[in-house]
Design a protein around this nucleic acid. Sequence first.
DNA 1: GTCTATAACTTGATAGAC
DNA 2: GTCTATCAAGTTATAGAC
Lengths: 189, 189
Amino acid sequence: MKKTKKQEIFEAAALLFKEKGYQVASMRDLANRVQLKASSLYSHIGSKEEILRKICFDNATCFIQRMEELLHQDISPKEKVRQLIRFHIQIATQDTTSITVFNDEWRNLSEPHLSRFLGMRNTYEKQFEAIIKEGIAQKQFKTVNSKIALFTILTSIRWIHYWYKPKRSISLSMIEQDILTILGLGLEA
Amino acid sequence: MKKTKKQEIFEAAALLFKEKGYQVASMRDLANRVQLKASSLYSHIGSKEEILRKICFDNATCFIQRMEELLHQDISPKEKVRQLIRFHIQIATQDTTSITVFNDEWRNLSEPHLSRFLGMRNTYEKQFEAIIKEGIAQKQFKTVNSKIALFTILTSIRWIHYWYKPKRSISLSMIEQDILTILGLGLEA
DNA sequence: GTCTATAACTTGATAGAC
DNA sequence: GTCTATCAAGTTATAGAC
């Protein structure tokens, strides 16, 4: 299956946005990387922000979808949290480029997209927090502030995409296990 | 003690950089906030980057200094890690503005300052990691990869500056205790 | 679809009057 | 020290030839 020029542009843009940041990356930079002049890009895409939007909303949708699946499963809050942590680690090691843009560059979205994005993120965080609260209520977790627990967990995984390289001697399952040891066991009662 | 215009500019810049990011914040934005025209700023400061440099290196020096003090104290690795976590939380809640810039905007430093900054950060992380390694060797911590533990700890604290507002009903010591519960106890053997 | 040329604008920083 | 005016360079995006 041959890649279309459009796909090629989107992939090059994701990498460029990761390396330089959205604001600093210029359309001329991007055009160079796909062997085009800047003006020719606009035969394939509508605008610079269209690219950012796709990256941000594709990832947001992905996380929300996984959350929906999980909510319908009949497993304990403790197991749900473990699954979510594993999922975050998997995404972060599997697609480091787009997750970097998703994590760091969403703030460059313009309205009304920014508000829609923050709404989706908020929904996800509320659902995650509810699972933690349920775990605390069931005494599967120690009694801590659920928001502190939520943010500590979420951000403690955020360094991986920045640091992880597939060639490293360290395996994915080793990362998973160590983080679950450092985090998970602390939270559990 | 009256604030000099220079101080006023530096403080307004830190807040502006936090809100918009260094690249997006313009000198015209900054001038507006201190009731000046953009060109007048240059009677007080040398360049936009001079402001960023001050914020980044002041903070880096602060963390390195605290580390030096700690290294000379005769306390266990476990206690050293707890003290470091407490210190990070204190800084993050005490000066949320400059810590945001320090955390997120250092990448906009130009050479040779960028390399010097990364060198300082690397020194700090190596010293922190050495303490963790010592704790593992002394069986005060569970056996985990020391780099994973380091990054998990460091980034798990990074959301605070972004989220913390002094008016919140939640106290500093409560944050400290909950994070130490979630993180600290997981790491300890 | 790709190009050249350019519109319309913003950026950091400077010159020189007052 | 602050201003107006301006420079030189950069930005996204479009018009129109081929």
